[in-house]
């Protein structure tokens, strides 16, 4: 296992960043996908991640969701280590128990929704609160119905995913993630698998989250206009690193790095 002795046991700061990647490395065999990535996200901040295919955007979210293990560095959430835990005054790789404790702060929505096909929309939303959080059914139902109402899916709450359109499924998936009351929400290209005419129904839900809730959000997207509209900060990824970052107006209006300029003009041409 990689040496993490140089990393702090926790992150101080007032307030501490909600998410902090410190020299995080992820590789698959000889392929380095994240290369000593440093990234801090403040509480309540909306950060969009853009960049060419294969630059490691999805990987950032997957590491934060602890879907896979990192090969180097430490990820902190809310000041406390996520990928590691304290033992005898040093950091050691996280146990399953530690992961389960810390993961509760994070929720994720996927490109292909990944709803549970054998459950209705409502059951999908209630599953985590009932099974994982141990909420009474009644309370879980009220919470889930409120969220389905918020995403405009209350009318279809008793439908199975196979009876819902992509946009509808993605809205249910957002409600399902929110039902766990995470502090950090991750969105990985949540509109990429959707038909153009239903993209708006999902982006509107995310807009609402940004304006009405104090969630910390990390969003990978190819929709530059949408990212520009709603983000506090844009990170342009290239080769497993942040090549350039800044407020949307700056990054889109006046990109400093050549690779950023190339990427943005290539995207513009494609539209």
């Amino acid at each position: 296992m990689h040496d993490v002795s140089a990393f702090p046991l926790q992150i101080a700061g007032d307030p501490a960043p909600m998410v902090s990647f410190r020299k995080v490395t992820k590789s698959y065999g000889a392929l380095t996908v994240l290369d000593e990535l440093d990234l801090d996200v403040k509480a309540g901040e909306m950060v969009s991640i853009i960049g060419p295919s294969g630059s490691g955007k999805t990987t950032v979210l997957r590491m934060l969701m602890t879907l896979e293990e990192i090969n180097g560095g430490v990820i902190y959430v809310d000041g406390q280590p996520l990928t590691h835990m304290q033992k005898n005054g040093t950091l050691v790789p996280a146990s399953q128990k530690h992961l389960r404790n810390r993961r509760a702060d994070i929720g994720m929505c996927f490109q292909h929704f990944n709803l549970f096909p054998h459950m209705t929309a409502l059951e999908n939303c209630m599953e985590g609160p009932v099974q994982v959080l141990g909420l009474p059914k009644k309370e879980a139902r009220e919470r889930s119905e409120e969220l389905l109402e918020m995403v405009g899916m209350i009318g279809k709450k008793d439908q199975h995913p196979s009876r819902l359109s992509g946009g509808q499924q993605q809205r249910v998936a957002i409600a399902r993630a929110l039902a766990m009351r995470p502090k950090v929400m991750l969105f990985d290209e949540v509109t990429s698998a959707l038909d153009p005419e239903v993209i708006g129904e999902v982006t509107n839900v995310i807009r609402k989250l940004v304006s009405e809730h104090n969630l910390t959000m990390l969003m990978v997207t190819h929709q530059m206009g949408f990212a520009r509209d709603i983000s506090d900060r844009i990170c342009f990824f290239y080769g497993g690193k942040i090549e350039e970052q800044g407020p949307p107006a700056e990054l889109f209006g006046n990109p400093k790095k050549e690779r950023t300029q190339q990427f943005l003009s290539a995207v513009k041409e494609a539209v």
Binding site: L67, R103, F116
Partner: peptide, 25 residues
């Protein structure tokens, strides 16, 4: 694979993943 990942994102235990998500499918 996405079903496993969704179950992890909901913070389920291994037993819960099998019992509630994987085996029924």
């Amino acid at each position: 694979k996405g079903q496993w990942e969704a179950a992890t994102a909901l913070n389920m235990t291994v037993a819960q993943k099998y019992r509630r998500v994987i085996i029924p499918q």
